[in-house]
C-alpha cells in the first residue's frame, strides 16, 4: 500500500459496510425497485480512485459477502462486481478525468451493463424477465453518483488530514 492510501483505510471499509447495509435497507413500498446497486457504486468509486485497494479479488470478496447477505446464488454478486471492477480499471485512465456529468453517464452505462449481466444470470437460473422497473435502478444510481463521490471524497480528505 502506498502512503497515499493508508490513511483512508477506515473510509474504505466503512464504505463497504455501508454499501452492504444499504443493499438491505428497504425503500418505501411503491419505490422498492428504484433502489440502486449500492455495492456496485462502492466498487466503481474505489476502482476509480484507489485501484490498489479495489482489485478484482477484493471486488469478488465483497460480492460474496453480498451473496451471503441477500441469499442470492453464491457468486452472483461476485460476478457482477468483478465485471464492474474490471471495466472501471480498464477505462480508469480516461474516466478519472471526465467532467462530473460525463462521469455520471459512464456510471449509468456501467450500471446498465450490470443489469444486462444480471438478466443473463436470471436467464440461466430460469427466472423470468423482470418488469421495466428493473431498469430504473441504474438511473437512480447515476443521479446519486456525484453526491456519493463528493461524500466519500470529503470523508477521505478528513481522514487524511486527521492522520497528518
Amino acid at each position: 500500500m502506498s502512503l497515499r492510501d493508508r490513511g483512508p483505510g477506515l473510509v474504505f471499509w466503512g464504505s463497504v459496510v455501508a454499501g452492504l447495509l444499504l443493499s438491505l435497507i428497504a425503500w418505501p413500498e411503491p419505490y422498492g425497485a428504484f433502489r440502486p446497486f449500492w455495492l456496485g457504486l462502492v466498487v466503481i468509486y474505489w476502482a476509480l480512485e484507489s485501484p490498489a485497494r479495489m482489485g478484482l479479488g477484493v471486488a469478488f470478496a465483497i460480492g460474496l459477502a453480498g451473496d451471503f447477505l441477500t441469499g442470492s446464488l453464491l457468486g452472483e454478486h461476485a460476478l457482477r462486481l468483478v465485471v464492474l471492477a474490471f471495466i472501471v480499471l480498464r477505462i480508469r485512465p480516461r474516466m478519472r478525468f471526465f467532467p462530473m456529468l460525463q462521469q455520471s453517464l459512464a456510471v449509468l452505462a456501467l450500471l446498465v451493463n450490470d443489469r444486462v449481466v444480471m438478466l443473463m444470470l436470471r436467464a440461466f437460473t430460469g427466472e423470468g424477465l423482470p418488469d421495466w422497473l428493473f431498469w430504473v435502478g441504474p438511473i437512480i444510481g447515476m443521479l446519486l453518483w456525484p453526491w456519493l463521490f463528493l461524500l466519500v471524497d470529503v470523508a477521505r480528505a478528513r481522514a487524511r488530514a486527521r492522520e497528518a
Binding site: 482489485g55 453464491l74 457468486g75 468483478v82 480498464r90
Partner: peptide, 18 residues
C-alpha cells in the same frame, strides 16, 4: 494486473460457484 486472464479466472470461479 487486471488483465484479461485474471478477470477470466475470477469470472470462472464465480460461475463455478453459482
Amino acid at each position: 494486473g487486471h488483465g484479461t486472464p485474471r478477470v477470466a479466472a475470477w469470472l470462472l470461479l464465480a460461475i463455478v460457484l453459482m
